[in-house]
Write a protein that binds this DNA or RNA. Structure first.
Lengths: 203, 203
DNA sequence: CCGGCTCTGTAACCCTGTTACAGACACCTC
DNA sequence: GAGGTGTCTGTAACAGGGTTACAGAGCCGG
């Protein structure tokens, strides 16, 4: 802890705070209190809070490793890759939003993007359709991650139950009941992901 | 402007600020300055900033109208419905994130949810699969909206160009070039949406 | 007239991020 | 060694967020 002050020491402390108490607990005063230093030292070494967040995003980018895709068919490997990114990002909860705000999600996604493109090519896509399929898949994953990240520190995730279904609707009771209460978003992610890749591959 | 103070007057002013200068410009002091009143009056009438945001989300919920689905096939009508929600939400930029944080996106989505379920039923789905397809579609739309809302007021959306493609990759040049630069997210939304519904309907 | 309720204003508190300014220390030169 | 110059740190403050303790106005019923 009592190290000589360096930019890296500050960033390390910032990472520690974010990992233990979340991104919202990262304030300049909390940081300098943890380092037992005055605020001005931090500003001298890193310049800004913006710069700290940039560095945090950098750290995240380089710590993300997407595992090799698993499965026999391209579809299985695409789904596997997408789930791999998701689980890699889930640990760095609040940072994915910050990365997106800085337009740096692209570099985080770069390895997965390559893998996805290869698999979509193996599935028979090429040209514009290949690029669009790859980007659409990444966009889907990013949307899910950010949506989950936004809700992270909310006090109550109570599902304000909405109006019931009208009796005349052409919906069976099983579906109506399932539509009534809050769905599991991880399950939703997977269902959507499989359907999305299926639809993207379909000629 | 010089109306007698009421809860509704305060909320009206809040709506005006959000619509003209964005959600981030909505502060208690800006609000009381616009109303030419002291802060305490606002607190007396509405209680909290949290309460103001709740009221804003309420206003948004009741102002969202999803148009009747268009198209011949269920797939076309599903896509049309999803695009209708998107365009309805796009005008209320920053509020969709707030609605999501409060777990109130469900009530905003209620009408569209009904329409989607009916169309998925018309496409042959039923039971758990119907419910999951409906929720997955809404989840997709929500993910896109929130992702777009997060980036709203960011200074530079510069696309930090990532490493080029390795020469040996089994990707044609057209795809490689398209994968290189920032894709249009609206186009991406549509491509993903069509593929998603196709994949959800497919037996 | 007086108490109580409704509503408003002043001024503060605690939290952000950020900076002007004054020092302490090292190192280099004369 | 004296003096300067650059590096680094601390004190204290500023501006701006949400929120509130407290003192009043004004009105209305007793």
């Amino acid at each position: 802890m009592g190290d000589r002050m360096t930019r890296d020491v500050v960033i390390d402390a910032a990472v520690a705070i974010v990992e233990s108490e979340g991104l919202e607990a990262l304030s300049m005063r909390a940081l300098c209190e943890k380092l037992d230093v005055a605020v001005t030292s931090i500003y001298w070494h890193v310049g800004n809070k913006e710069a700290i967040l940039d560095a945090l995003v950098d750290r995240m980018s380089s710590s993300i490793v997407t595992s090799k895709p698993r499965g026999r068919t391209p579809e299985q490997r695409i789904v596997s890759t997408a789930k791999s990114i998701l689980s890699a990002l889930e640990s760095h909860g609040g940072l994915v939003g910050a990365a997106h705000q800085r337009g740096r999600l692209a570099v985080v996604f770069a390895p997965a993007r390559r893998q996805l493109a290869i698999e979509f090519a193996a599935a028979g896509l090429s040209g514009v359709r290949l690029a669009e399929a790859t980007n659409a898949t990444l966009h889907y994953v990013a949307g899910h991650c950010i949506t989950m990240g936004v809700i992270s520190r909310s006090p109550d995730q109570s599902h304000t139950s909405v109006d019931l279904w009208p009796e005349g609707a052409p919906i069976d009771r099983v579906a109506a009941r399932r539509l009534q209460d809050e769905p599991d978003s991880n399950r939703l992610f997977e269902v959507g992901l499989v359907a999305l890749t299926k639809g993207l591959i379909a000629r």
